[in-house]
Design a protein around this nucleic acid. Sequence first.
RNA 1: GGUGGGGUGGCCGAGUGGCUAAUGGCAGCAGACUGUAAAUCUGCCGGGCUUUGCUCUACGUAGGUUCGAAUCCUACCCCCACCA
Length: 378
Amino acid sequence: MFDFTLEATQGAARAGTLTLPHGSVQTPCFMPVGTRGAVRGLHPAEVERAGAQIILGNTYHLHLRPGEEVVAAMGGLHRFTTWQKPMLTDSGGFQVFSLSGLRKLDEDGVEFTSHIDGSLRRLTPEKAMQIQWDLGADVAMAFDHLPPGQSPHEIARDAMERTLRWLERSRQHHDQLAAGAPRRQTLWPIVQGGAWADLRRDSLAGILAAGDWTGVAIGGLSVGESKPIMYGVIEELEPALPKDRPRYLMGVGFPEDIIEGIARGVDLFDCVAATRNGRHGSAWTADGRVNVRGLALRLDEQPLDASCDCEACTRFSRGYIRHLFYAEEHLGPRLVSIHNLHFLIRLADEARKQILDGTFAAWATEWRQRYFARGTTP
RNA sequence: GGUGGGGUGGCCGAGUGGCUAAUGGCAGCAGACUGUAAAUCUGCCGGGCUUUGCUCUACGUAGGUUCGAAUCCUACCCCCACCA
């Protein structure tokens, strides 16, 4: 039910198949983010046509609205949203970071001042497990403490050790919830430790000592640290990660990060940038980023990316999409979201094919050259 | 024809003697965004230049008062309202 089969490797890069209750996921894979039970702005059919095999939901947001009890009463997140493929829910750990101005943290958990109505909401490892169990995604994430990317050793160590203690509580509570129930949800731990190699090693060692997990996530990256540090952390970790388990790099990334992550042995990615940047008018193409609102596109009859077969590129011109943005037609942001999603999904999928063919390294080199040729900021 | 109100940067619209190249907003241009408090935020936005500054041209037009005018005076042009 929670199987992972490794099909091929090339260097650290891997191609595999992850089997989950709602279906299988071929890796490497990019997972669109649907924080509040919807990939922002898109119809599930569009997300599916963009190639998504699995999407995310968020514990914190769905707890605030509509409430996990509502989702459970409506038959769970899959039935509620009509998304019948695999799903993964984040634990609310990211909100410890992103809502740092609205929360108080102690050993027991985190108290948030709801950004919706100001009410106090307490999230603990146990509560995060209960919410995720009620939501019913295939994969639940452990409740973690994510410190800012440039945290000093002492802070990163404190957060990493707390994350390990919280992992034990998460695991115990999740086991309790799952006891006697059919195996419909698995729990994944999250490696923390900031930019510090020793902390990252300790974090992973602690995780692996704590149990036999069906997958392992690397968290706390792309939160303010530099790219060399982010890539370096993955390189440090890779040899110690279980070969026969999927590795999930949380919250990453941009196209170049997907390539670099795959090259360093990552199997799963998720990132809001595809939809957020898409909404904001930034499109990824094989030749780098394109500012959709740019004056240069006013009379451009080309698609966003000539090599793309998404619903936006096979039908609409840059000039028209630019017009939609200026006219504030929702179709504009939606089309670029669809394109960016498809771009990342196809990127991971193409990497998979190259790994299976044993040509990944050469392909990646060419890809980087072309993507950065025009001077896109790395 | 008379009376009253008004003409400000691409547009709308503040400003009634110096701190005004001129508040705001819109439009426009550029940038940011990585497990979504984001259909958001930031910067630029009269011209030129050696651009944390200098300079030229500007508040209907033409004169005038003043050390100094978008702001006061005169004439003219145009717009709006009401009255004939």
